[in-house]
Simulated scan of single mutants.
Amino acid sequence: MLDASAKGVYVIAPTPFHEDGRVDERSIDTMTDFFLGAGATGITVLGMMGEAPKLDAEEALAVAARVIERASVPVVVGVSAPGFAAMRTLTRAVMDKGAAGVMIAPPSSLKTDDQIVGYYANAAEAIGADVPFVIQDYPLSTGIVMTPGVIRRIVADNPGAVMLKHEDWPGLEKISTLRGFQADGSMRPISILCGNGGMFLDFETERGADGAMTGYAFPDMLADVVRLSAAGERDAAHDLFDAHLPYMRYEQQPGAGLAVRKYVLMRRGIIGSAALRKPGGGVSAKTRGEVDYLLARLARHDARAGDLRGA
Rank of each mutant, 00 (worst) to 15 (best):
F17S: 00
G98V: 13
G143I: 01
E204D: 11
R26W: 08
P170T: 10
L308P: 03
Q253T: 14
K111G: 06
P189T: 15
R261K: 13
D130E: 13
R300M: 12
A40R: 05
P139I: 05
D56C: 10
V131K: 05
K165R: 10
D307P: 07
T41D: 12
M213N: 11
D24K: 04
M95V: 11
L55P: 02
D3Y: 05
L276N: 04
K278Y: 15
K174A: 15
M266I: 00
A217C: 13
I116T: 06
P14L: 02
G282R: 02
V76K: 09
A4S: 15
D292M: 11
A38Y: 05
Q136W: 11
P219E: 09
P14G: 00
A124N: 03
F203I: 13
P82E: 05
T15K: 04
D24R: 03
K7S: 15
P16K: 00
R261H: 12
D113V: 09
G101Q: 03
Q182W: 05
Y119G: 05
S108V: 11
G280R: 00
A93H: 01
L308G: 06
L245H: 05
A121I: 14
V11M: 10
P107D: 10
E58H: 09
M163F: 02
F133Q: 03
V150N: 11
E290Y: 11
D29L: 14
I144C: 10
R66A: 06
I28R: 03
A296E: 15
A52P: 06
G232A: 13
R234E: 09
G42W: 01
H18T: 09
A230K: 14
L222T: 03
G269F: 04
A156G: 14
E167Q: 15
V76S: 06
G39W: 00
Y10L: 08
Y10E: 02
G257L: 03
I127A: 04
A38W: 08
D302Y: 02
A303T: 12
